[in-house]
Amino acid sequence: MINRNLAKILSKRYIILASLLFVAALGLVLLPSYQKNENVTAEHLLAKVINPERYITSDVLADKLILKDPSILLIDVRVVSEYEKYTLPGAINIPFDSILNPNYEGYLNQDQYDIVLFSNDNFKADQAWLLLNRKDYKNLHVLNGGINGWYHTILNPPKPTEDMPQEAFELYNFRQAAALYFGVGIKTKVKKEATPIPVKKVVPKKAVVPVVKKKKRKPEGGC
């Protein structure tokens, strides 16, 4: 025997299914909206912050610059006037205020170069690093000590004393040679008071980074 109630309901099955779809779609509209924490969670960010790879020392950077390492992209986050006074060779100037400017996104949002951010000290570069990581950009580093650190280690390194190990002298020699390379001749007997040393203006080469679209595999198929 046919269940009459069931038959009655089944005769209206299309109406029921259609209203189900409608209610589900309406539910999406009526759901309260909330701000989502997209991509980068606090844990994710902390893991990156405590990662020592976040910093690059001025010695390592100097070595890479001398070897003309093509994978390095220097970003100067100081203001334009400071950038014009002195910057590292090949650095691009993206002032801190406009770090999120979409015009610069092509330079920052990429995965081919190791980006090195620097400012006068660590402070601004670190903030920029954090902001860009929040945007989930890749391969970001901060020059430890910034331009000041660069000056104190590469351009005007402290002379090691007699009781220091051999490595300290080797490092000192390297730094002196690097200083010469970067256009600052330092005599071995330079007086500390002689600062400011004549900073030879290095005309920064404007590096052009080709913005390569990420190729995604095209899904195939159809109905």
């Binding site: 259609a18 779809l21 409608f22 779609a25 999406l28 509209v29 759901l31």
Partner: peptide, 18 residues
């Protein structure tokens, strides 16, 4: 427009089409 409004519109369009 927010995605939810577009989904609602497309749902209505579909139901009318059916």
């Amino acid at each position: 427009l927010p995605a939810s409004w577009i989904i609602l519109a497309v749902t209505l369009l579909a139901l009318v089409a059916f």
